[in-house]
Amino acid sequence: MLRILYDGEIYAIQKVGGINRYFDNIISRLPKDFQPILTSVRSRNDHHPYHPNLKLFSYKRFGFRPGRLSYWLEPYYFQSVEALNNYQVFHPTYYSLLTQQKFEKKPYPVVLTVHDMIHEIFADVIDRDGQMAEIKRRAILAADIILCVSQSTKRDLLERYSLPEERVWVTHLGTEFSPNLSDGNEFIPSRPFFIYVGGRGTYKNFNNLLIAFSKAVSQVPDIMLCVVGSPFDSTEQSKIAEMELDKHIQHFGYASDSHLAKLYRNCIAFVYPSLYEGFGIPPLEAMICQAPVIASNTSSIPEVVGDAGLLFDPTSVSDLADRLLFLLEYPAERERLIAKGLEQAQKFSWDKTVGQTLQAYQYVVG
């Protein structure tokens, strides 16, 4: 029985999110004779991954008074959990730890997953004081094996760190999405629509999508853009009003997986204008749900989309507008892209991800 300790820092940082899903899938798909050990600050009743041999050590923050004492005791609780559990591999869920210890102090092999290099590439807007990049740097240098979620992330990592390449492995991601999710009675627009999914800040390049969509609307006034994600802030609302797009944009908030699958299944295309992604799961979801993909030609995105999407230069508004109009004008091209997308999506699965991760575990324990 191989015992892997997962420091659950990401479950404190994110309620939901891509990294949460990654570890949920890794842990729940481990072989039955493995034993995952997970530390967490969530209540035991909150969501955690399932495995028949899972040992969950939960410390509820501010679980008793005074709160300051509860918070002070927290790292000591997790340090004792680590000391008392005889594990063989340490796989933290993030670059900082619930124990508040340094990675170098770990007595067992460390496997670290690096999802992207946004803290380094977009330091001026995401990590101006470099604090997060420094925490991440220490974790990277202390790891025995680094798992990168794409060849693009591996290249970005090796450009910044003089590490032996054999220590850096690529384990692509997967998705649980299925076309069958789209059979519900959730609302979708009656007019032809494009769909955008996810965060919209900084490198996500949502502003260029608005400008390109406005150009497309000027030629095809009936179309809509459906946006799934956080509410529009005041700046976005002003821009949408200024471009006179109020009647052409519909916001769906945090749509359920089944609602999102139905939107994918019925859209003209899914649009992914991001300037950078470590992997990018939404294009994979879209292809599985038979949505044509219009996506940036940068970072890992071509690696995920392959030749199954219409790629464009994300710095060129006209390039994106042309792709939107092209699919409106040539519906036969949509069908070709849908078929190619289904084929491309078969290359990625969580079972493959877990299989490659298991190889890393077995490698570090010799």
Rank of each mutant, 00 (worst) to 15 (best):
Y330F: 08
F326M: 04
R334D: 07
E333Q: 07
F326H: 07
K352S: 15
E333N: 04
A339W: 13
L342F: 04
G355H: 10
L337C: 02
V354N: 08
D351K: 09
S349V: 03
V354M: 08
R336M: 14
G355L: 12
W350I: 05
F326A: 11
V354L: 14
G341H: 03
Y330L: 06
E343F: 08
F348A: 10
K347T: 10
E329G: 10
Q344K: 05
R336V: 15
Y330S: 06
E335K: 10
T353L: 09
L337H: 10
L342R: 06
A345W: 01
A345H: 12
F326G: 02
L342V: 14
R334E: 03
A332K: 12
W350D: 09
Y330W: 00
K340W: 05
L342H: 06
L328S: 00
L327T: 10
R336Y: 11
A345P: 14
E335I: 04
R336S: 13
A339I: 11
A332R: 09
K352P: 09
E343S: 05
K352Y: 13
T353S: 09
R334V: 06
F326N: 13
G355R: 10
Q344I: 13
Q346G: 05
P331S: 06
F348M: 12
K340T: 04
G355N: 13
G355Q: 08
K340V: 01
Y330C: 10
Y330Q: 06
R334T: 09
L327N: 00
L328W: 04
K340E: 11
L337I: 04
Q344W: 01
A332M: 07
V354W: 12
V354R: 15
